[in-house]
Each structure stands twice: as structure tokens, then as C-alpha cells.
Simulated scan of single mutants.
Amino acid sequence: MENREKTKWFSLLMIAILLFIVALLTQLYVLNLIVIVLAVYIYKYGNPVLFKEYDAKRKVQYQQYQTVQKAAQESLRQGSIFKK
């Protein structure tokens, strides 16, 4: 089921990209508005389906970054990093 959802959103994304290219080549501004609405729809509802694994990986990396940042701030605050 998840694969079917990914295929649906990926196809919709490719259609949006193709419509964008056609709109640029033909200079149809109405088509650009349709592409913008479609892109916002894909971003809002399709992003969690298309980039689920990527978002999870980024979240873990961000949490690790925050842990390191807090440890660095704490050591700088205590001054233990420069003491021998």
C-alpha cells in the first residue's frame, strides 16, 4: 500500500514538473498558477509520503547535533575545555 502511495505522489510530482516546463516554454501564466497550486498540494500532503525515510534520518541527525551542541555549551560554560 505504501509503495502505491509513493508511486501516486511521485507521478503527480513528475506531472507538476512537466507542466512547469511546458508553462515556461509556452509562456502560459495561467498554467504557472496551476503548477503552483499543485506544488503546494504536493508539498503539504505528498512530502510525508515521498520523503518519509529522509525526514526520519534528518531528525536523528538533528537530535545528535543538538546533543553535541548542548555538551559543547556546557563545557564552555564550565570552562573545562581549556583547563589542563
Rank of each mutant, 00 (worst) to 15 (best):
E2Y: 11
N3E: 01
R4F: 00
E5P: 01
K6L: 09
K6S: 02
K8S: 10
F10Q: 04
F10Y: 07
S11I: 15
S11P: 08
S11G: 10
L12K: 15
M14T: 11
M14Y: 15
I15H: 09
I17N: 06
I17R: 14
I17V: 13
I17G: 09
F20D: 11
I21F: 04
A23H: 03
L24S: 09
L25K: 10
T26L: 11
V30K: 13
V30N: 13
L31E: 01
L33S: 05
L33M: 11
I34N: 06
I34G: 04
I36A: 11
V37C: 05
L38A: 12
L38G: 05
A39Q: 02
A39L: 11
A39N: 04
I42T: 12
I42H: 03
I42A: 08
K44R: 12
V49W: 01
V49N: 01
L50S: 00
L50K: 05
F51N: 12
F51Q: 10
K52Q: 07
K52D: 10
K52M: 08
E53P: 08
Y54P: 00
R58T: 06
K59T: 04
Y62Q: 03
Y62C: 10
Q63G: 00
Q64E: 05
Q64T: 06
Y65Q: 07
Y65L: 13
Q66P: 09
Q66Y: 03
T67R: 13
V68L: 15
V68A: 14
Q69C: 13
Q69W: 14
Q69D: 15
A71H: 11
A72V: 14
Q73P: 01
Q73A: 13
S75N: 14
R77Q: 13
R77I: 10
Q78H: 01
S80A: 01
S80R: 05
F82A: 03
F82P: 00
F82K: 03
F82H: 01
K83T: 09
K83M: 03
